[in-house]
Simulated scan of single mutants.
Amino acid sequence: MPRAAFFTKETITAAGLEIVRAGGEDSLTARALSKALHCSSSPIFTVYEGMDKIKEDVRNAARALFSEYVSDVMDYYPAFKELGIRIVRFAKQEPNIFRMLFLGLDSSYTAEISKVDLCLDGIEEEYGLTEAQTRLLFRQIWPLACGLAVINAQNPEVYPEAEISEILSTEFTSMMHFLKSGQQVINITPRLRSSADEQKL
Rank of each mutant, 00 (worst) to 15 (best):
I19A: 00
I188C: 04
I151H: 04
T134Q: 06
R63L: 04
E10S: 13
A14C: 01
R31W: 05
V47Y: 08
R21C: 02
E198N: 07
K92H: 05
A149W: 05
E124Y: 05
Q133Y: 06
D197Y: 05
I141W: 13
V20A: 00
I85M: 05
A196W: 10
L137M: 13
Q93R: 06
S34H: 10
C146E: 11
K9G: 05
L168V: 14
F66C: 04
S41R: 15
E157M: 10
M175A: 12
A5C: 05
L179M: 08
G24H: 03
A30S: 13
S40T: 15
K200G: 01
E131D: 12
C119V: 03
P190H: 04
L28V: 02
P2D: 09
T189D: 13
V150D: 15
A30P: 00
A162V: 11
Y159N: 08
T110K: 09
D52Y: 04
F178D: 03
M176Y: 12
V47L: 02
P43Q: 11
A111H: 06
Q184T: 15
K9Q: 15
F66M: 03
S71F: 07
L33Y: 06
E166I: 13
V73P: 04
S195W: 14
F178K: 03
V88P: 02
L144P: 07
M176E: 12
V150S: 10
L118M: 07
F45T: 06
L201S: 10
Q199F: 04
A14R: 11
S41W: 08
G84L: 00
S181E: 09
G122K: 12
K180E: 13
F102N: 08
E126S: 06
L179D: 10
K180F: 10
T29M: 02
N96P: 00
I85Y: 06
